[in-house]
Amino acid sequence: MTAVTCELCPRGCVIPEGAAGDCRIRVNLGGRLRATTYGRPSAVHIDPMEKKPLYHFLPGAPVFSIATAGCNLHCLNCQNWQLSQRGGEEMEEIYRLDPPELVRAAREEGCRSIAYTYSDPIVFYEYVYDTAELAHAQRLANCFITAAYINREPLRKLCGVIDAVNADLKAFDDGFYRRVNGATLKPVLDALVTMREEGVWLEVTNLLIPTLNDDPAMIRRLARWVHDELGPGTPLHFSRFQPLYRMRNLPPTPVETLDLARREAKDVGMEHVYVGNVLGHEGNSTYCPRDGTLLIGRVGFMITHYALTPDGRCPSCNERIPGVWRSAELFGEQP
């Protein structure tokens, strides 16, 4: 009987024959590790880019979004737990979409980008990688929405085919990660730095949960770390918690807490700080950090105002706003 050791994420699961890793979908069959959901997503949707959320990457573009079962985190407040906390054999809905079919479907639906999202796409790494390579060959962008709990070498390789990441930095506290997510903080911070080094467009989301990670001092430490290690131009999203899954005992995050977090982050020098999951909040929109001009107005996932110049500058003061504003910036002008 041959056990195998998975090297994909910091868990390093040692998996006996006939069992799965902690993620439930990487299974040891006959002494070989199998990616059992390869080409078999259980969620397929077309979303606006703003839903990911990616606010500085091809704004307003529809993005073909997929996920398979499984996850390497076990967050008590997971909003996709029916998908993430189950193995492939437990799913009712499974679609057959091997990489070429997936890329073809995205193109047919008029999407210029594919998002690997909902559960954590780290666990269906092989499917992401092969699809992303094919997508690039057809000038489609790849977006990776993740909690960034991944080892350095697999991540480095993946960054070669990924264009944009929204990474969930759940708290700036290792104890929180252990209690609420079943993970640890340091590998996540290392992964974010690696993504920045590899030149992938990166935005960071922090979901604020009342009493658990909404301490202003912790928020300030998180924002300072993002500022120092990832840069002040990194978009930072503070998202509103909704009681879900195994965390229904806490109320939704008060808007005042999100406002406070936004102020703290701006105080340490972050230039683009957003508030998420609050309809119509002024923190949904993008402003010029130099003169305050409204550049992109948003209500929910809709863009209501767009004033950026084609090369991504403020029309009033010509300040360059960091981001990827047109797909030509990724692939060059269409021949």
């Binding site: 195998v4 050791t5 998975c6 090297e7 994909l8 868990r11 390093g12 699961c13 040692v14 998996i15 006996p16 006939g18 069992a19 799965a20 890793g21 902690d22 439930r24 990487r26 299974v27 069959l29 070989r32 590790l33 199998r34 990616a35 059992t36 959901t37 390869y38 080409g39 078999r40 193995g87 492939g88 054999e89 437990e90 499974i94 057959r96 790494y125 092989e126 499917y127 080892n151 070498e153 697999p154």
Partner: peptide, 28 residues
């Protein structure tokens, strides 16, 4: 760091093509 799964159910779904036997990378 590993989980017991319903192996017969998994194998049935692989047999009918609902799941895959694609070999993973990053393991030893």
């Amino acid at each position: 760091g590993w989980r017991a799964i319903d192996l017969p159910a998994l194998e049935r779904r692989i047999d009918v093509g609902n799941l895959s036997e694609h070999e993973a990378v990053w393991y030893h």
